[in-house]
C-alpha cells in the first residue's frame, strides 16, 4: 500500500505530527509506505487556509487537516502508529489547545499537560503512541514553545519532549523537512532571479 502525504511548507502550523508519522512508517519493516510531497504553499487546500496536510490514499480518497490525517494514518498503519483510537482525544486536544499563540491561554493547557505527565513517561501506556507524535508535533510547530521547553517552565513537559526529541525517528523527520524547505527556497530564489531576492 502506498499513500501520499502532501505537506504545506508555509503553513502557519507545520504538520510535524504527520511528518514524524511518515518517518515511523517508512523506517518500519512493514509493506506500506508513505510518499511525501512538500509543497511551497500555505495550505494544501485552496478552500481552507488551515489545511497544513493532506493524505491521498491509493483509491483516491483525500483526507485534509492534520488531526484527521493523523487519525487516518493510525488506522492505515496500526502496527507502527499505535493506539490510534485511544489517542483521538489527545490528537484533538493538541490541535485545538496547544497550537495557541497567546501565552496566557496556552499556559492553562500546558499546566494540564504537565499534570498529565506527573506520573507518565509517555502520553499513554508505556510506549510511544500516535498521541505522543501528535502532541509533540504541535508543540514543535508552536513558536512559543522553544523557550518554554528550554527553560523547563513545565518540567514534566520538557522531560517528555526532550526524551522524544532524542528518538532518531523524530529527529530524522525534522531534519528531512528542514532539508526540503531549504531546497524549496533555493528553487524559489532561482526562479525569482537575483535582484528580487535581495530586496530586504
Amino acid at each position: 500500500m502506498v499513500v501520499t502525504l502532501t505537506v504545506a511548507a508555509k503553513a502557519p502550523l507545520v504538520p510535524y505530527g504527520s511528518l514524524i508519522a511518515t518517518e515511523f512508517v517508512n523506517r518500519s519493516n512493514g509493506d506500506g509506505k508513505i510518499d511525501l510531497q512538500v509543497v511551497d504553499q500555505k495550505s494544501v487546500d485552496s478552500a481552507d487556509a488551515n489545511s497544513a496536510s493532506k493524505l491521498t490514499t491509493s483509491d483516491g480518497k483525500e483526507i485534509k487537516g492534520e488531526a484527521d490525517v493523523l487519525k487516518e494514518l493510525g488506522k492505515l498503519f496500526p502496527d507502527v502508529l499505535q493506539e490510534v483510537s485511544k489517542s483521538q482525544d489527545l490528537i484533538d486536544t493538541a490541535q485545538n489547545n496547544l497550537s495557541i499563540k497567546n501565552f496566557k491561554e496556552l499556559a492553562t493547557h500546558l499546566e494540564k499537560l504537565d499534570a498529565h505527565l506527573n506520573f507518565r513517561s509517555f502520553m499513554l501506556f508505556h510506549k510511544c503512541t500516535v498521541a505522543d507524535i501528535a502532541v509533540w508535533g504541535v508543540l514543535r510547530a508552536n513558536a512559543l514553545m522553544g523557550s518554554i521547553i528550554k527553560n523547563e517552565v513545565y518540567v514534566n513537559v520538557s522531560r517528555w519532549y526532550n526524551f522524544l526529541a532524542a528518538d532518531e525517528r523524530f529527529d530524522a523527520a525534522i531534519q528531512n523537512f528542514t532539508k526540503s524547505l531549504a531546497e524549496l527556497k533555493k528553487s524559489e530564489k532561482l526562479s525569482k532571479g537575483k535582484k528580487e531576492s535581495h530586496k530586504a
Binding site: L117, N118, F119, R120, S121, H126
Partner: peptide, 14 residues
C-alpha cells in the same frame, strides 16, 4: 517522590 514513582512505573512495565 513523583519523579521516582513515574520512573518505577516505567521500569516495572518495560
Amino acid at each position: 517522590h513523583r519523579h521516582i514513582i513515574r520512573w518505577v512505573d516505567l521500569i516495572q512495565n518495560t
